[in-house]
């Protein structure tokens, strides 16, 4: 009965072949997964600390009309146009969300829902209205397929083949994110921890807030056309949230996020091969399982440890 649902487990097929015969394909899928998880996870750490976890979700939907409008107005698919469209849509989303909840009785979570669903709907209307001119559909944005990465056009530099364009682009974005976090670590830290103090120190808190939102928009847009919104939304939360259960120091949680990104991508790829399922879906499930494991079994503050302690105390 169960064989109908779960394919047989064959060690050779699942673990050896992808890295021998299938190496040329799977290395790019793994790397793309890692870079997406890493870039999203690094930015996600700060998004979570600012209690804005759902804003990432909102922006990933709101980007649709930004990109669609950028296409329609410029009738080009160049990266610059996409990035400008995405950043504008991302920033507008956050500005609207804040403006609504600051000037009305609507709370932040409801404001997020209002703004992103409106933006997303406008995007869908634009795409269906101008479908003939726009080589883009809502499905591809939401459910982009990481498995197609090896077939993408290759990027080359000085005659050297660097790999599929989306992977190279995502690697670049990840490096830029790492660089920015390193350069502006103290500003990001203090504006996330204590806005009042940051202001009194002469740090432009708005600049860092919207700067972070702009970076978030760039990360999302460079990732989701190739891997889908589900992986992006998940990876904005999972690495940071899981790492925060393990360590209470921000530099360590940032490092752990990178390590977790490797695990999600690597285990996810193998799980997807075994179950013959969506790779992005498998990576998210792996992230969910790792989170559950840490949450339950973490030796310092895991749920099971805590339950043991309470039992000891009540005895």
């Amino acid at each position: 009965m169960i064989e109908n649902f779960i394919p047989p487990f064959n060690f050779n097929d699942i673990f050896i072949e992808p890295w021998t015969y299938g190496f040329e394909s799977y290395i790019w899928i793994f790397l793309m997964g890692f870079f997406v998880n890493a870039a999203c996870g690094l930015v996600g750490n700060f998004i979570i600390l600012r209690r804005m976890a759902l804003v990432g979700d909102a922006i990933s939907h709101s980007l649709l009309p930004g990109i669609a409008l950028a296409f329609i107005l410029s009738s080009s698919r160049s990266t610059t146009v996409i990035v400008i469209g995405a950043i504008s849509a991302g920033l507008l989303t956050t500005i609207f969300i804040e403006y609504i909840y600051k000037t009305s009785r609507v709370k932040a979570d409801a404001a997020i829902g209002i703004v992103f669903s409106t933006f997303f709907a406008i995007g869908v209307i634009l795409i269906t209205m101008y479908a003939d001119h726009v080589d883009l559909d809502a499905d591809c944005v939401l459910y982009g397929e990481i498995g197609f990465i090896p077939f993408d056009e290759r990027a080359s530099f000085a005659g050297i083949n660097l790999g599929p364009i989306p992977v190279v682009r995502m690697a670049g974005v990840t490096i830029v994110v790492l660089l920015l976090i390193n350069l502006f670590y103290k500003e990001l830290l203090v504006t996330s921890f204590d806005v009042g103090l940051a202001n009194s120190l002469g740090i432009n808190t708005n600049l860092f807030h919207y700067g972070l939102m702009a970076v978030l928009s760039v990360v999302i847009v460079s990732a989701f056309e190739s891997v889908g919104a589900i992986l992006v939304i998940a990876m904005l939360i999972f690495p940071g949230a899981t790492a925060s259960l393990i360590s209470h120091r921000l530099p360590i949680t940032l490092g752990l996020s990178l390590f977790l990104s490797i695990l999600y991508s690597l285990i996810g790829v193998h799980l997807a091969i075994w179950l013959n399922c969506s790779i992005a879906g498998a990576m998210v499930v792996v992230a969910g399982l790792i989170f559950t494991g840490v949450w339950l079994f973490n030796p310092t503050n895991g749920l099971i440890k805590k339950m043991g302690l309470t039992r000891k105390l009540t005895k």
Binding site: L189, S192, F193, H248, L250
Partner: peptide, 11 residues
């Protein structure tokens, strides 16, 4: 917040 005492004072 994931910082220690010295981190906060350094701010």
């Amino acid at each position: 917040f994931p910082v220690n005492v010295l981190d906060v004072v350094l701010m």
